[in-house]
Simulated scan of single mutants.
Amino acid sequence: MTDPRPGSFPARLAGVALVVAGLACGEVPTLPEGVAYISPIILASPAVALGDTLRDSLGVVTPLKLYGIDNSGDTVRNITPLFIVTSIPGQSVHLTPTNLAIGDSVRTATIVGQVGTRLQTPPASLDVVLQPDSVSASTSTSSRFPVPTAGEVTSVVSLGVSVTSPPTSTTQRAGVKSIIVRYAVTRIFPATASIPDTTLVLIDDTGRFRLPTGRAATDTTDAAGSASRRIRAIPLGFDSVEVSASANNLKGIPLKGSPIRFVVTTK
Score class of each variant (00 low, 15 high):
P89S: 04
G207E: 06
T2D: 13
A44H: 03
I234L: 11
I84H: 11
P32I: 09
G207I: 00
V263R: 01
G59V: 03
L50Y: 02
A245G: 04
S140P: 12
I88N: 15
F9P: 03
N71E: 05
L159E: 05
D222F: 04
V176P: 01
P122V: 15
I231G: 10
S258W: 06
T198G: 07
A17T: 14
T266S: 07
L43Q: 00
R230D: 12
S194I: 15
A49M: 07
S8H: 07
L18H: 10
A245D: 10
A124Q: 01
I42V: 14
V163Q: 02
G15Y: 07
V181C: 02
Y67P: 09
G160M: 05
S57W: 10
K267F: 15
E33Q: 14
A137R: 03
V185F: 04
F189N: 14
P63G: 06
P10H: 03
V264Y: 06
Y183C: 03
T121R: 03
L202A: 11
N249W: 00
P29D: 01
S142M: 15
T86G: 08
I203D: 06
R182C: 03
A101C: 00
S72C: 10
S45T: 03
L130D: 15
T164L: 08
A24E: 09
I179E: 02
F189L: 13
T186N: 08
F145S: 05
S57K: 11
Y183L: 05
L58N: 15
R187A: 11
V176T: 02
P6E: 09
S87T: 06
Q131P: 04
A191Q: 10
T108W: 04
T75G: 12
K256W: 12
K65W: 13
L236G: 12
H94W: 15
Q120G: 02
L31P: 00
L54N: 00
A109N: 04
A14C: 11
S105L: 12
I84G: 09
D197Q: 11
S162D: 14
P166Q: 03
F262A: 10
S246V: 05
S155T: 06
T30L: 01
R232I: 11
A47G: 01
V16M: 15
A17I: 13
S72H: 12
I38V: 06
S155G: 06
R215N: 14
A191K: 11
Y67I: 13
G113Q: 00
A36H: 00
R77M: 12
P122E: 15
G252M: 04
V241D: 09
T170F: 00
P63M: 02
A137Y: 03
K267V: 15
A217N: 07
P123Y: 01
D197L: 09
G257A: 04
S134D: 05
R210S: 14
V147K: 10
F262S: 04
I180C: 09
R144E: 07
A193N: 11
P254C: 06
P254D: 01
D197N: 10
L50C: 07
T121Y: 02
T206H: 12
P81R: 00
L64G: 10
P254E: 07
G59P: 00
A193D: 02
V128W: 00
L211T: 12
N248Q: 08
